[in-house]
């Protein structure tokens, strides 16, 4: 029951490989997330699946149709919300939806019914006849989601649906996405670089980085893969020494260090028992710990684990990399 299946899909722009031999399957009815930092290749992947870009190589089927051969068939069965706004600001909300419905060949009666239904879903009924030039970012986004659904697609692509929106609007939009996934039984592919968004919404997530898919699984399973609790520490001095010392300890499964902001991430079996030992070691080495935090693995930790750096660091500064100080890798002094 796979509605999308892709294998070794690749897109090369001049000499940049934006998407590099990715493979995954999306099951009917699920919310599938592509999670990755800026420039990871999310939009390029979506564009290939939506037939807006022709892949350089590889295989992709969307709703049984080949992306190379059956573009029109695919276009009929998908809805798409682009990363960049794509509304006509000279038209009203309703006219934007009408344009869409007509260009997808819907009859008048069905069209009007569906437009009202969708305006209700995203709570824009009372704004229907206003020019969208005056809409806020959140309202435009909601309208675009409504528009993507007008022609009853089987699959809805959402490219960064909440990018740049405030927290409250974001929660609202998550609500709509969940609702329509349940109510309309529609398969949703969404891209995001918000960990919380991926965690809350997606049944399964593919982590994509530098055009490659690192891992694909449900948020729950991904967290389990880390095998333990996470302790994060903020150190004041002697960073490298402490990191190396911790790296030698057998009961710590993994040590990740971000020298730039003096952060250490430790994966341990029983976090509550580990903390006193770590504090004791720090005191012995005359190292000052500024902050200490124990938590169950979050998607953030998963991301750090699989890509070697946190998504936020990557967005802020591509070069700020976490060193992997896993025991085996630490050269003995």
């Amino acid at each position: 029951m796979c509605i999308i299946s892709i294998k070794n899909l690749t897109k090369q722009f001049d000499n940049l490989v934006a998407v590099d031999h990715i493979s995954f399957k999306v099951k009917k009815g699920e919310i599938f997330g592509l999670l990755g930092p800026n420039g990871a290749g999310k939009t390029t992947t979506v564009n290939m699946l939506c037939t807006l870009l022709t892949p350089t190589s590889g295989y992709a089927k969307v709703d049984e149709h080949d992306v190379y051969k059956n573009k029109v068939e695919i276009r009929k069965s998908i809805g798409l919300v682009f990363q960049e706004p794509a509304l006509d600001s000279y038209l009203t909300a309703r006219e934007n939806l009408e344009f869409h419905a007509m260009i997808y060949g819907m009859e008048k009666k069905e069209r009007n019914k569906r437009i009202d239904e969708m305006l209700n879903l995203v709570e824009l009924k009372d704004k229907a006849d206003e020019l969208i030039g005056n809409f806020s970012g959140g309202m435009k986004r909601r309208l675009e989601i409504a528009r993507g659904l007008i022609h009853k697609p089987k699959i809805l692509f959402l490219d960064e649906p909440t990018l740049g929106l405030d927290v409250q609007t974001r929660r609202h939009i998550w609500g709509y996405i969940n609702k329509l996934n349940k109510k309309e039984k529609i398969t949703i592919i969404l891209t995001t670089h918000y960990l919380e968004e991926a965690d809350r919404l997606c049944d399964r997530i593919a982590i994509i980085d530098h055009g490659r898919i690192i891992v694909t699984d449900s948020p729950h399973k991904l967290k389990e893969k880390l095998g333990g609790d996470i302790i994060s520490l903020k150190i004041n001095n002697n960073f490298s020494r402490f990191a190396n010392e911790l790296g030698r300890l057998k009961w710590i499964r993994e040590v990740k260090a971000s020298k730039g902001n003096m952060n250490l991430f430790l994966t341990v079996k029983e976090g509550n028992r580990a903390i006193p030992k770590i504090v004791y070691l720090a005191q012995k080495l005359k190292i000052k710990i500024n902050e200490i935090d124990l938590h169950k693995p979050s998607l953030e930790d998963v991301f750090v684990h699989f890509t070697g750096s946190s998504i936020r660091e990557r967005e802020n500064n591509g070069k700020l990399k976490l060193e992997n100080l896993r025991k085996k890798m630490v050269p003995a002094k």
Partner: peptide
């Protein structure tokens, strides 16, 4: 420039 072209391009019309 304003993104609307994509809305037209991705529609199933020639």
């Amino acid at each position: 420039e304003f993104g609307f072209l994509k809305e037209i391009t991705v529609a199933p019309i020639n």
